[in-house]
Design a protein around this nucleic acid. Structure first.
Length: 271
DNA sequence: ACTGGCTCCTGAGGGC
DNA sequence: TGCCCTCAGGAGCCAG
């Protein structure tokens, strides 16, 4: 389940393999992703050179001279750099053949992800133009979270997972960041002090930064573009640890449901 | 303006 | 062994 650390890990993995390469062919086997893969994607790309691989939120932006491929991995998406002679397997939906003899392959069993094309500035694309702040950049501060949360009654966990406020935080890292900040996930966002939001902003940066250093979290099927797993799952404090001892105080980790999402917390460490 | 619920989808895992 | 059920969840969309 790629969140920001996983997507950034993939970006760093594919960037040196893609930049400077010419796309020699594109194969779309299944265009039925969250939104249809553009019918003429191959025409936009074939013969053009990739000049950058960027990321905004959980979107990867693969840019050539005329536009950008916008890739989202959804829940189960993978991007893999393969040799071109590897046969396509189930759920290998899109291939980008490169001039260096490699191939970038998009694989997504659940098809919650997307592969789109835009000639606009990506930041003005409808999917990207309303996005909130990047958690690892200076713009994410306690004061910002405090300001955005005033008069809002929703739970702080849902607030953290709202990509119009702050991007890249999915269910795993929302749980972990709230634990690191000592904040109960059900607490109303509008009833948390500036000081606690400052702690939370630091916790978000710490958790996401450490997860990035560990190459992300591999619970089931996540891997980077070279097939390597991440290791942050070894450092999870509460996520998927129902009934196990809190790593700080020993109290059993609690599990509740918020909306359709699983929430994990320590009732002694988080208030 | 907010908020919560629904929806898309496949595969894993548990119970019997 | 196999079948059926539930769960996992990113995030756009919509109703209240």
């Amino acid at each position: 389940m790629p969140e920001l650390p996983e997507v950034e890990t993939i970006r760093r993995c594919i960037e040196p393999k893609l930049v400077g390469q010419t796309v020699t062919d594109v194969t779309v086997r299944n265009s039925n992703l969250r939104w249809p893969v553009p019918e003429h994607l191959g025409q936009y790309l074939t013969g053009t050179k990739i000049i950058a691989v960027e990321r905004r939120a959980k979107y990867l932006l693969i840019r050539n001279e005329t536009g950008s491929i916008i890739v989202h991995l959804g829940m189960s998406g993978r991007l893999l750099i393969n040799p071109t002679d590897r046969p396509a397997e189930k759920h290998d939906h899109v291939d980008f053949i490169l001039s260096n003899g490699k191939r970038l392959r998009y694989h997504d069993p659940r098809r919650f992800g997307c592969v789109l094309w835009t000639t606009e500035l990506p930041s003005s694309h409808p999917l990207l133009n309303g996005l909130g702040r990047e958690p690892l950049e200076d713009g994410l501060t306690g004061a910002y979270l405090f300001g955005e949360s005033r008069r809002r009654s929703l739970a702080v966990k849902a607030f953290l997972m709202n990509s119009r406020i702050v991007v890249g935080i999915g269910n795993i890292y929302a749980n972990e960041a709230l634990f690191a900040a000592g904040i109960h996930p059900s607490r109303q966002a509008g009833r948390i002090s500036l000081k606690r939001y400052q702690t939370l902003a630091r916790a978000i940066k710490k958790v996401l930064g450490e997860a990035l250093r560990q190459g992300g979290t591999t619970l089931r099927d996540y891997c980077d573009a070279a097939g390597n797993p991440g290791y942050f799952q070894l450092k999870l404090m509460v996520y998927d640890r129902t009934g196990k001892s809190c790593r700080l105080c020993g109290t059993p980790v609690q599990h509740i449901r918020q909306g359709q999402r699983s929430t994990y917390f320590c009732k002694k460490c988080q208030h």
